[in-house]
Amino acid sequence: MPQMAPISWLILFFVFFITMILFNIMNYYCFFFKNLNQNEKKNNLINNSLNWKW
């Protein structure tokens, strides 16, 4: 029925929106950050620096 179309569009919007939010939350909390202490950070920066030789 054409009269019911806006309601079904709204329901579809909420379903896709909730699915997207849940997917983003799951991806955010499933990713593990690697903690580096200060010495490792300094060494990593020194090793990754580029030496330009002109």
Rank of each mutant, 00 (worst) to 15 (best):
M1V: 03
M1C: 02
P2L: 00
Q3W: 04
M4E: 05
M4Q: 06
A5R: 04
P6S: 00
P6W: 00
I7P: 00
S8K: 00
S8W: 02
W9G: 00
L10H: 06
L12R: 07
L12Y: 08
L12P: 04
L12E: 09
F13T: 09
F13K: 05
F13A: 02
F13V: 04
V15R: 03
V15W: 05
F16I: 01
F17R: 04
F17C: 08
F17S: 12
I18P: 06
I18S: 08
T19A: 08
M20P: 05
I21T: 07
L22I: 10
L22A: 02
L22C: 11
F23I: 06
F23E: 01
F23A: 11
F23D: 10
N24L: 15
N24R: 09
N24T: 05
N24G: 04
M26E: 12
M26S: 07
Y28K: 08
F31T: 15
F31E: 13
F33A: 10
K34P: 01
N35H: 02
N35I: 11
N35A: 15
Q38C: 03
N39H: 05
E40T: 00
E40H: 05
K42H: 11
K42W: 11
N43R: 08
N44A: 05
L45S: 11
N47G: 10
N48C: 07
S49I: 00
S49F: 12
L50H: 09
N51D: 15
N51C: 10
N51Q: 15
N51H: 14
K53S: 15
